[in-house]
Design a protein around this nucleic acid. Structure first.
Lengths: 243, 243
DNA sequence: TGTACATCAGTGAACGCGCGTTCACTGATGTAC
DNA sequence: TGTACATCAGTGAACGCGCGTTCACTGATGTAC
């Protein structure tokens, strides 16, 4: 009445605020359980206990265990996506190589900070759980879309060296896949560079996964940060980004 | 008595043969359960059921659940190691690039055939389980040792192109790690190539993991075999293997 | 401003399930003399 | 070759546990008139 805030974007009622607060708490507690016991052991009862509530009460907020997994998946993708976006945007628009390295390092540092979420998103599939594509595809593709957009912008700016190492032929079937991707994402970058972009993508996550999942022995690599940055440097060369 | 077979390598008694047969059965059934429900859900009771035996009986053969996991881990590493060895050895000794590609393709085809074992070895760690290094290190390093030996042999034969793409500097801390590795494994290959070898290693597994763990969307890549072979071809160039 | 009703959060008991692991036991198979 | 004993595989009952999910319920908070 007195103020002009009746902008029809109806402000949340106290109940609604309490409700979304509780859902946020559930997701947070779920993430902690993920970190302690892994996705397969994620249990609604345990989350209810930590929430200080009887186990059946969480069913007011979450349909079942699988939906909690879905919420955690989406939450993880968005955390990672936000950090990657911020890292890339902190680099000058013309420094494509720097943007690529910032992206890679953002992925690594988030993964090391949240190994359980990383494992949920990029590790072994959770047995018996199938992510609902309608809800996870958009957040789940943020990083790769960002990576591709860096490569494409670099190409359009003439910053992708076309004569990278020994050229490797692209078989027709693979070229067809590349065409589809290029069309769907409105890209300019040609087949060879696009295919190398895919390799770079999987390689970045391969390096991060080895480190997070403990595939490097306990003490084979002391200089892991340097190793990763070196890997990024080489990968940058693979796709022809100079700088 | 009648024959000369008392060579002191005492032949197994019937009981001993039955025993190792049963252990082999347990491992085989465990692998099947892994494939169906994942490592976290691996249960001794379920294995006992499939073995047609009461649940407490498996404790005659396996100390506890963790030991079954260890057996499966070792079994998986050795399956993979055997296939990789066979693939590499089927290529002429002088064709280092061919050996590398054979290794990569052997990893991929085993992983696609045994996705659950692959997930156990290279996916998210199993919560609460710590592999006993004394038993798993040797089988667990077979692939990387084989890969390194291909690179080293190529280097010694002068088949590693030293002027690969833009050279990337190796910081001192990383160089120290490389020195230790070189000494421990008796290698000749220099820092730059060794570091690129590590990248190639993690990249091969990164590409395989993305495919096995379903990170590529359902239909983004139809030509997965071609994609992987292309990736191997580029990686081969990264480390300077010509051919 | 006050009353009557609807909505929602949380309770507590219960269902049926599978798990790892221990233990005292029965019988069959091997070994020593 | 035969007997006495030791070893081993497998049984079946029991322990205590945690899980997902349903359901009828109580009480507090919101909404319509």
């Amino acid at each position: 009445m007195t103020s002009v805030e009746a902008t029809k974007a109806k402000p949340p009622t106290p109940r609604e605020r309490a409700r979304s607060q509780t859902i946020a708490d559930i997701v947070r507690l779920g993430r902690e359980h993920l970190a302690l016991h892994g996705a397969a052991a994620l249990s609604l009862r345990a989350v209810a206990r930590d929430l200080g509530v009887v186990s059946s009460a969480v069913y007011r907020y979450v349909e079942n265990r699988d939906e909690l997994l879905t919420l955690l998946l989406i939450d993880g993708y968005n955390q990672l996506g936000d950090e990657v976006d911020a890292a890339v945007e902190s680099v000058p628009a013309a420094d494509f190589a720097g943007q690529f390295r910032a992206l890679g390092m953002a992925v690594r540092s988030w993964a090391l900070r949240e190994p359980a979420s990383y494992a949920l998103l990029f590790g072994s599939p959770v047995p018996g759980y199938q992510a609902p594509g309608e809800r996870t595809t958009v957040p789940g593709t943020r990083v790769i879309l960002r990576l591709v957009s860096v490569f494409d912008a670099a190409y359009r700016a003439g910053a992708l060296d076309p004569k990278v190492t020994p050229a490797v032929v692209i078989p027709p079937a693979l070229a067809a896949d590349m065409d589809a991707i290029r069309e769907q994402l409105n890209l300019a970058v040609p087949d060879a560079a696009l295919a190398r972009g895919v390799l770079v993508w999987t390689s970045v996550f391969g390096a991060v996964s080895f480190e997070v999942f403990g595939q490097y022995g306990a003490d084979t690599f002391a200089a892991r940060q340097e190793l990763f940055e070196h890997q990024l440097g080489v990968l940058q060369g693979v796709v022809g980004l100079q700088g």
